[in-house]
């Protein structure tokens, strides 16, 4: 089982169960998590599924994809070292317990 926790800007948390192979973005949409818009549906073309990966999870979620940084640079909220497009983080058992923070502004 893979659990993912989404933390809203106000600190409220929602933990949901994900399907292996789904992205952090798709999992958020499947569970009606606020603040993940994902306008482009995962083509890395819009920057509306921006998240900040919490603490040491950044090692587990791996490096940004080619082109991801250019798109993150267009996000409405500040790009930080921990910024990722959640459509580009594919969930595996190794990511069970993942915690991601949702930025103040998405679009």
């Amino acid at each position: 089982m893979i659990n993912v926790t989404y933390i809203q800007p106000d600190g409220s948390e929602t933990t949901v169960t994900a399907q292996p192979g789904d992205s952090v973005m798709q999992t958020a949409l499947n569970n009606n998590i606020d603040g993940i818009i994902a306008e482009c549906g995962g083509s890395m073309a819009c920057a509306t599924c921006h998240v900040y990966v919490e603490g040491e999870w950044a090692d587990q979620t791996g490096a940004r994809m080619d082109g991801e940084e250019d798109m993150l640079d267009c996000a409405m909220s500040e790009m930080k070292d921990t910024s990722r497009l959640s459509c580009q983080i594919k969930l595996t058992e190794a990511l069970d317990g993942l915690r991601v923070h949702i930025p103040e502004e998405q679009a």
């Binding site: 949409l29 994902a38 306008e39 482009c40 549906g41 995962g42 083509s43 890395m44 073309a45």
Partner: peptide, 13 residues
């Protein structure tokens, strides 16, 4: 979300 009108993947519009 996920409609195919703009395509999908690396060739997405």
């Amino acid at each position: 979300v996920g409609h195919m009108a703009f395509g999908a993947g690396i060739h997405g519009c």
